[in-house]
Amino acid sequence: DIIVVALYDYEAIHHEDLSFQKGDQMVVLEESGEWWKARSLATRKEGYIPSNYVARVDS
């Protein structure tokens, strides 16, 4: 799995977006363009995230 960590807070604009806080970790489910589908490890919610707001966690 690709794990990313939030670099900034993000408040969902559309209902399919995923809100998150700086430091939150998410599993990337699908990478396509600038918006990635991800699942929050904390809340288990899924939605689209702006890929420029996150960084990959080296395992």
Rank of each mutant, 00 (worst) to 15 (best):
D1Q: 14
I2R: 11
I2H: 12
I3L: 12
I3M: 08
V4L: 05
V5W: 06
A6C: 06
A6K: 01
A6I: 02
A6T: 02
L7I: 09
L7V: 06
Y8N: 06
D9K: 06
D9H: 07
D9Q: 05
E11Y: 11
A12P: 07
I13R: 13
I13V: 13
I13L: 12
H14R: 13
H14K: 10
H14T: 10
H14S: 12
H15V: 14
H15L: 13
H15K: 14
E16A: 11
E16D: 15
E16I: 08
E16Q: 12
D17V: 09
D17G: 15
L18F: 05
F20Q: 00
F20G: 01
Q21I: 10
Q21C: 14
Q21N: 11
K22G: 03
G23P: 00
D24Y: 02
Q25G: 04
Q25R: 15
Q25M: 15
Q25A: 09
M26T: 00
V27H: 07
V27Y: 09
V27S: 06
V28S: 01
L29Y: 07
L29T: 07
L29E: 04
L29G: 02
E30F: 10
E31I: 14
E31M: 15
E31C: 15
S32F: 13
G33W: 04
G33C: 09
E34I: 13
E34V: 12
W36I: 11
W36K: 06
W36F: 12
W36H: 04
W36Q: 03
K37Y: 15
R39Q: 08
S40E: 06
L41C: 13
L41M: 10
L41S: 05
A42S: 12
A42E: 11
A42W: 06
T43I: 04
T43H: 05
K45I: 09
K45V: 08
E46T: 12
G47T: 00
G47I: 01
Y48P: 00
Y48D: 03
P50K: 07
P50E: 02
S51D: 03
S51K: 15
S51H: 10
N52Q: 11
Y53S: 08
Y53T: 04
Y53R: 08
Y53D: 02
V54T: 04
V54L: 04
A55Q: 13
R56F: 12
R56S: 07
V57H: 07
V57G: 05
V57C: 11
V57M: 11
V57A: 09
V57Q: 08
S59H: 11
S59T: 13
